[in-house]
Design a protein around this nucleic acid. Structure first.
Lengths: 241, 241
DNA sequence: CGAGGATTTGAGCTGGATCAAAATAGGTGG
DNA sequence: CCACCTATTTTGATCCAGCTCAAATCCTCG
């Protein structure tokens, strides 16, 4: 049994065998959610948190007149709404960008962990802190970089994060990226039309190849330089926490 | 003795007497930091977290060529870098926007809390989740609202947050806001020149009065409407966590 | 083969940037 | 109390990255 959560946490700190056991027992129920459906509804008060087992999901906020900003994109092993455990009321929605397989983790189980497993609690807390670090990086790239630079940055981030959970093909530097240009624009804060133009420019400069839902990065160093990408903010290294 | 941290946490959930005691004992040392100095240095590995006792501070990231984005602004009672406890390495800097009085909280004390005080741990965790919720809201307002709307939103947020720690004058709806227009621009992601023009427009429409380091909001409802401000994301209400 | 979504192209427009300079406001030392 | 220095705010003129609107093409899949 592959356990993407344990895999992800093991990137952050050594896990004891019993801790892995505890993690494995968290998921009370598995469900499938079709693309464009909400995994979690804005304003709801969930009694469980949602662990993404497979697929891509996005948190989003809407303006009063319905324009959407995707504030993060999640992949296997990510808790898309671990924060609902303590925030109680959802202040945003979470949508399935592809067909998603999700595991439901009762808040009661999380409370139990917080009472009896301080080390695991710190690691779960840590994953929400990394979410915050990503938000901050997005704030920077959104406001201060050109949309091409910002896109380059985001592609690098996706690569690193998918790589961490074993979903990157390290040989040809490619990852699954089954999004539409419109969805990417909602994450970048730009229009579909402009996403398209940015991609054309990137293609012309052979910075990336993106088709059939797969993104390939022929020259990592150049892409990372253009996107001013420094992976430090992802905190993907194992140390005692 | 006024304890701004206990005051803030008490807005989120009932605190036991002994918990307040524990919180009071956290600060090992108090220091003063002058404006424009770093409270926490980017890339450092702090051995303590910084509780802001008095003053205004801002987290910031820089682009490679030195442009700055302020990713959050903190006031009394805020932990400006509680996350350094688990992230270990700072992925951004924290600067004093005014003269700041800070309390240093050793990470060892935080580890102890996480081992022995599950409820307090959840509340501290929660404060970092609220930081994340604010980041998401900023992502939305930055990308989808006009700069005037975004500014209105930010002013509403400041008012609510300062009000929660007793720093707002509820009578005339005013708060301390000792920032320069340049600093505000760094938080909004716009230039000083444009901040100035936005403020002129807001003044002309008597949405706000801002001078002598104090912001007054003559008509809350109008400002909140323009900024599409809904305080839900601040999660400022007491409930069992 | 047809239909609805996704991508692409084109033409103009605009919010906010840039650059440069002037006016003000604080703060400091004499 | 004044003269001076520096940071901040304000004004003006120009520019451009990314938006809007509209239509065409291309997939994909029933």
């Amino acid at each position: 049994m592959h356990d993407p959560l344990a895999k992800k946490l093991a990137c952050l700190d050594r896990l004891a065998r019993e801790e892995e056991e505890v993690l494995r027992s968290l998921v009370a129920q598995v469900r499938i959610v079709e693309p464009r459906n909400d995994l979690v509804v804005n304003g709801s008060r969930p009694s469980h948190s949602t662990l993404l087992l497979d697929g891509f999901a996005g948190r989003y906020n809407l303006t009063d007149d319905g324009r959407r900003q995707i504030t993060s994109i999640h992949v296997s092993g990510d808790f898309v709404d671990l924060h609902s455990f303590l925030l109680k009321t959802m202040d945003h929605g979470v949508t399935a960008l592809t067909r998603c397989r999700i595991g439901l983790v009762p808040h009661s189980a999380l409370t139990r962990i917080s009472e009896t497993e301080p080390h695991l609690t710190r690691l779960l807390w840590l994953t929400t802190l990394i979410d915050g670090a990503i938000h901050r990086e997005w704030l920077l790239t959104m406001s201060r970089l050109s949309s091409l630079e910002q896109t380059a940055h985001l592609f690098c981030e996706f690569y690193m994060r998918l790589s961490a959970v074993g979903l990157a093909n390290e040989a040809d530097r490619s990852i699954p990226l089954p999004l539409t240009q419109g969805e990417l624009g909602d994450a970048l804060g730009i229009t579909t039309v402009h996403v398209n133009r940015v991609l054309q420019e990137m293609r012309a400069r052979t910075l990336v190849v993106w088709n059939g839902g797969r993104l390939t990065i022929p020259n990592w160093d150049r892409l990372a330089e253009i996107g001013q990408f420094n992976p430090l903010y992802l905190h993907q290294h194992c140390e005692p926490r």
